[in-house]
Simulated assay, not measured.
Amino acid sequence: MHVEVIGSGPPLVLLHGWAMHGGVFLPLAEALRDRHTMYLVDLPGHGHSRDNTVPVELDACARAVLEAAPVAPWCGWSMGGAIALHAASRWPQRIPVLAMLAATPRFVAAPDWPQGMPVATFAAFEAGLAADWQATVERFLALEAFGLDDARVRTRQLRTLALERGAPSPRVLAEGLRLLESTDLRPQLPTLEIPSLWMAGRRDRVVSPLAMQAAAALTPGARFMQIEHAGHAPFLTHPQEVAAALLDFFAAAPTPPAPPSSEHHAHAPV
């Protein structure tokens, strides 16, 4: 699995969202490179990990990341947030701090979770993926930028980033949608053993800030905040604000010591 290592200082693992890759975090990595050694992961089937055959499932992806990164806080965006939350609930000894960035324990709405994406909207993405996966990815990227003052510019930026390392296969994209549709990690929230930050974009049309606020309210040691003018990718549009919020939260939470160098070393499977 491809992991790009950038910066110096205590380690920080960054997990991207559906149809993307670790390179999407480069603006945030630039803002943090003097304070953290960042591990920008290309999840299995994505980016430079395109040939990695690990299925896009919570446990499989979490274990793959644990094998490729040191003990460190994890910051997960969107689908990456679900993987990070699952890993933190199972292996808190490996993940001392969790940051959920435009991410939620349950992506799709339910009678007891009205803050999720409407079922009909999500079903349209699934149907579209089967009919025309490229157009479906385009629509999802447009939704990620919807509501921003410069939505067209940001949509083009996301499109360029998404294709920078090649698009995931239709199989990988379908597995990612199934992960989003089937995941419900709300039962894990009350017993989460580590501090967590839930950071939302107020203009996000993919993951509602209300969903993140509700999740934080269920989680001991959680802090909720939102970035006023951000959408679904605040690390891209407001990297300095996201970096400042992460640094502030990490300063009040336990973090592992800095690695001896920026050179990456694989770790034993968990």
Rank of each mutant, 00 (worst) to 15 (best):
D59F: 06
G221D: 07
L26V: 07
C61L: 12
M100A: 08
A127Q: 14
L179W: 00
L66F: 04
S78R: 11
A142D: 08
V242P: 05
P220C: 13
L189A: 01
P234N: 06
V137W: 00
L192Q: 02
E181V: 05
A120N: 12
P11M: 07
E30A: 14
D204K: 07
A245R: 13
Q226M: 15
P44T: 08
A103N: 09
R159G: 04
T121P: 01
A135Q: 12
W133P: 02
A99K: 02
V207L: 04
A84V: 03
R202F: 11
P209E: 10
R223A: 15
R159W: 13
M79K: 03
G80K: 11
R94H: 11
L12H: 03
R202T: 14
P168W: 01
E57H: 09
G7T: 06
A230C: 08
R106Q: 15
S196P: 10
M38I: 07
G47V: 01
S261N: 13
V242L: 10
P209V: 06
M199R: 02
L148E: 04
H86W: 14
T255G: 05
P260Y: 08
A60V: 10
A230F: 10
E193A: 15
A258W: 13
D132I: 02
D248S: 15
E181D: 12
R202A: 15
I83G: 00
A245C: 14
Q226D: 15
C75Y: 02
F235D: 00
Q134S: 13
C75W: 06
F250L: 15
D34A: 15
E181M: 09
A266L: 14
R156C: 13
E181K: 15
A64I: 03
Q134H: 09
A88T: 09
D149T: 12
A131E: 10
E144W: 00
R203A: 06
I6D: 02
A103T: 07
H229C: 09
M212R: 05
L173Y: 06
V242M: 11
L28Q: 01
L98G: 09
H264G: 14
S182Y: 05
P111D: 12
A127W: 05
H21L: 04
H36E: 03
V56G: 04
G201D: 04
D248C: 12
P27F: 04
A252R: 14
S49R: 04
F140Y: 14
P254F: 10
T37L: 02
F107W: 02
G81Y: 12
A258L: 09
P118F: 12
R33Q: 15
H46K: 06
P92T: 04
T255M: 07
H46E: 01
V5G: 00
S262D: 09
A130D: 07
A102I: 03
L246H: 04
W198L: 04
M38A: 15
M38G: 05
P105H: 12
Q226E: 15
V207R: 01
P70T: 05
R154K: 11
A167E: 07
L26C: 05
V71L: 11
P105S: 11
S182C: 06
N52L: 07
L180V: 01
P220Q: 09
L28M: 08
H238P: 04
R159V: 02
P70S: 11
A252G: 14
G7W: 03
V207M: 01
G7F: 01
A127I: 01
